[in-house]
């Protein structure tokens, strides 16, 4: 029997724009359906998709509809003043009947079950928060949403949020000033999770506020900095590799994988696909900053920085120590 070549990729498909509604100044809500009316992939609150536009432009947008709806998904897209083409394309070229390529969904911002939540949405950062508050409401959690924006006219989906009454506080900056994070967050509590999405200024302010006082794991935030798994433009670098259990120190040159360096040193290591998809060569990381390039580890597992696939992943620090 010859070997089976295995490829793994994310779902990708053409979707039809069923509705394109202007929901606030410079904000359009796109409702997408399968062209044949087939069910769309399931997702959970916090998920986003890639829109693949003309010329290969790829941008990430959060899903802001209901995960229970199998026929449509909705994205809320702000025309960014400094748009490099993504949001301008959506606003200028997409209308009812347009077809757009969609990849995903994937979720790096999942809503973890909790008795109590504080949600903070800044501007278009409200989009992933919309299905989150729906889920928090459905599960009977105690929650509050603070939704900040430049001006009321720039804040989309306010009508939909009206159904939650006093659980939603609108904070238009031109009327009431900036979100007062001290008041919004209150005293740290161990029964509360904080979810925030918005501009970088808001994210780092919340991070700074939560960092010291709140329990680890309480703060969840999303930055739209999707990790591209590509070799760095400046080329691969060399780094030192220490195998703690074997008691040897090796050098990984730019043109060789960690796996091959280990093997060449005569140390037994399991490996199988050499493409970062099977997970066989997984090793425990004791020290060093891993540059994950595999398709096995989830976002949180990558962040934990305690395991890696040595066939494709590398190291961004000068020294990597493995428990091998």
């Amino acid at each position: 029997m010859t070997g089976t070549k295995t490829t793994v990729r994310e779902y990708e498909g053409d979707m039809l724009v069923e509705a394109a509604d202007v929901v606030a100044e410079d904000v359009v809500a796109l409702t997408l359906v399968d062209p044949d009316g087939d069910p769309l992939p399931a997702w959970t609150p916090g998920a986003h998709v890639d829109l693949i536009m003309e010329g290969g432009l790829v941008r990430q947008y959060s899903l802001c509809s209901s995960p229970g709806d199998s026929r449509t998904i909705r994205l809320g897209i702000l025309r960014a003043p400094e748009s490099r083409g993504g949001s301008a394309y959506v606003h200028e070229k997409l209308s009812v009947g347009s077809v757009v390529r969609v990849r995903g969904p994937r979720n790096h911002f999942p809503l973890v079950a909790s008795p109590r939540y504080i949600f903070i949405g800044g501007g278009i950062g409200i989009t992933p928060i919309l299905p989150m508050v729906a889920e928090a409401e459905a599960s009977g959690a105690d929650w509050h949403l603070y939704y900040g924006g430049r001006a009321r006219s720039s804040m989309g989906f306010v009508d939909e949020l009206a159904q939650y009454g006093g659980k939603v506080t609108l904070v238009p900056q031109d009327e009431v000033g900036m979100l007062d994070l001290a008041t919004v967050l209150g005293d740290p509590r161990d029964d509360t999770l904080v979810y925030v999405c918005g501009p970088e200024g808001l994210l780092s302010a919340v991070e700074a506020k939560c960092g010291a006082d709140w329990p680890a794991g309480a703060l969840h935030l999303e930055r739209f900095a999707a990790k591209e798994i590509e070799a760095p433009a400046e080329g691969e670098r060399s780094f030192e590799l220490e195998l703690a259990a074997s008691g040897v120190t090796l050098t990984v040159p730019p043109d060789k994988s960690i796996f091959d360096v280990i093997l060449d040193a005569g140390i037994s290591v399991l490996g199988s696909c050499h493409e970062g998809i099977c997970g066989t060569c997984e090793q425990i990381v004791l020290e060093g900053e891993v540059d994950h390039r595999d398709s096995v580890l989830s976002a949180s597992e990558r962040a934990a920085n305690d395991a890696m696939m040595v066939c494709v992943s590398r190291c961004t620090s000068d020294r990597l120590v493995l428990d091998l």
Binding site: T2, T4, K5, T6, R9, A42, W43, G104
Partner: peptide, 16 residues
């Protein structure tokens, strides 16, 4: 025809 196992294409989404 298993003697010539064809390529396997795996497609993932968040939930499937």
């Amino acid at each position: 025809v298993i003697a010539v196992a064809p390529p396997l294409d795996v497609v993932v989404t968040e939930t499937t």
